[in-house]
Structures are given as C-alpha cells and as structure tokens.
Design a protein around this nucleic acid. Sequence first.
DNA 1: CAATAACCCAGTAATTTAGTCAATTATAAG
DNA 2: CTTATAATTGACTAAATTACTGGGTTATTG
Lengths: 158, 158
Amino acid sequence: MRLTTKGRYAVTAMLDLALHGTERPVSLADISGRQDISLSYLEQLFAKLRRNDLVTSVRGPGGGYRLSRGGGEIFVAQIIDAVNEAVDATGCGGTSDCQQGEVCLTHHLWCDLSEQIHQFLSQISLADLVERREVQSISARQDARTQAQGETLSVAEL
Amino acid sequence: MRLTTKGRYAVTAMLDLALHGTERPVSLADISGRQDISLSYLEQLFAKLRRNDLVTSVRGPGGGYRLSRGGGEIFVAQIIDAVNEAVDATGCGGTSDCQQGEVCLTHHLWCDLSEQIHQFLSQISLADLVERREVQSISARQDARTQAQGETLSVAEL
DNA sequence: CAATAACCCAGTAATTTAGTCAATTATAAG
DNA sequence: CTTATAATTGACTAAATTACTGGGTTATTG
C-alpha cells in the first residue's frame, strides 16, 4: 500500500464522478476542468480504473465515465490499489534476497503495517466521502456565519 | 502523510537500532550490512532523523547512533515524517490556487484521510514493533517445529 | 598518530509522476 | 452518411523523487 499524490488524484477524480455522475456519464474533460488534473493524466488513470472494474465507459457524444456500481460499494483502498498497480510487495516478496530471517522479518512487519492501513481505507466508501463532504460543507457555512472557534481552523481556511 | 519505500527504509533502520542498540551505539555500516541499505543513503536518512531528535550520534571509533529516547516514546509516524520532511500539504495548503470551494474541499477531505493514517501510525511505537517482532519470531519457530497450518503461511515463508 | 565513524556535500542513475501529442475507434445527433 | 464528441491506445518527454556513489572533513578513541 503506497500513499502518494497519484492515489489522491484518483480518489479525487472518482469522488468527482460520484458527485456529478448521478444523471449522465461524466467526461474526463469535465473532471479535468473541475479538479484541475490534466486530461491525458486522467486518461491514464481511468484506463487503470476501468481495467479494475471501478468505472464503466460510454463512448461518443454525451459519453464519459460512470461508477461501475454504487458509491457505497467502491472503497478508497480499491481506487488507490488500482492506480498503483503491481506494487510487488516490498522487494522481498517471497522470491527475493533476504539473507537472514531478520531482514525478512522487518519487511514482514512493514507489510503488516501497510496492510492495516489498507484495511482502514477498505472501510471507507465513496458514499462515505460524499456524505462527509456534505456534512463538512454545511458546517463550513455554519462556521463562516458564527465565526470559527479555533478547532475548526482548517475548515475556516477555505 | 506519504507512504513510500523511503519511510520503510527509515522505519527498518530505526527498528534495527532498537534491536541492536541497547548496549552500545550502532554504526551505519552495521545497519547497512544487516538491512541491505546503502551506507550513503542511510547517512542521508539519519541526518534527518537526527535533526528531528529521533537519534543521537557518537563520533569516533566505537561510535554510531542511539535512539534519542526509549523505543516506547518513538512512533512510526514521527520516523516517516522525519524523512519525508516538507510534505507541504497537498498543493493546496491554504496559500494556493483552488478556483472554487469545491476543489479545496476534496483536498481537505484527502487531508482528513491521511491525517487519520497519521494518527494510526502515531500510536505504534518502536517498542511495540520490537515486541511484535519477538512474538512473531517465537511463533515462527514454533510453527517451523509444529508444521504450519496455512494461516501462518507468510511467516512460514522465511 | 592512526583508525574509526559521524558528518557534509556535490553529483548521478533509476524510478515514478505528470503531462504532451498524435493517432484510432465508437457513437449520438443532425 | 457525415460530423462532432469522447473514449481508447501508444509512444514519448519533462520534472520530481528515490536511491546511490564518491570525496572530503571532523571528532574521538586507543
């Protein structure tokens, strides 16, 4: 499990789909415009997302992408895994060159750690994020009116 | 919070320190030999670890590095943060170019997510890992004797 | 003084990220 | 049928990050 900007782009794009794709398919050009991600980079990402059955495509005018299923059944971990593809474990994925058990054990430990993160992100669905979003935007507007109190600083930045 | 191999190297090296540095300081050459990380790369990593007060150094013959405090007071998140340094949020760290509130909100959401991972890794200390390690190595030896039963496959690989 | 090992710095190969460009293919609409 | 739209494919490149090399210096122990 790697956590890089690439995964963030993918999650952002998928969230955009979840937010805007309820009626009609969403074109990558739209996502590119809204989320400020280059069209060609989106193409690369969505090729992988499609191969991993997270989205379906509709060609031609009015076409674009749709979530392959409900937002409640697509999880953040799946999205990140899809675009990171072929993470090949840790350079010590069973086949490789751990001289002593010791080395391999620290690797194994790291796998444990990232596996737990993976499980954490496997529990968060796009639907969860959409909901959370609405909650936050509401509370953000409330904060703007009632003057933020300090804890809500990061929200007030917007 | 980024999760890359760089952070894994740092955690592995720090764990090596925790395991072998109880008596005397541990030289980077030793860690390099045991963990198969290039000496110069370790130098880079430890420069950052030292700047972040996670290790102390002893120069001269017999010198090396020590944990700056007990393994129970050094957490995985601190190690990863130390070597990743200057993560500058998400390209939208307050100062930047979010055209609409919308974009900024997806960013904020991602921050939330990685913040939760950060908190998770902030609860795991080196001491926890050392303990876990011992438990695993013991159970690994037990499994080797009693013939592993399937679930313990990854341990049995060693 | 000599050996050790941290410390520092400049450079560089390899990989990943991010993006460009140029085609081709499917399809809806006129 | 033609045209515009938008996915799809692929090759190629720029920038950033990761991982590493090598050369030096400084402090310390024996």
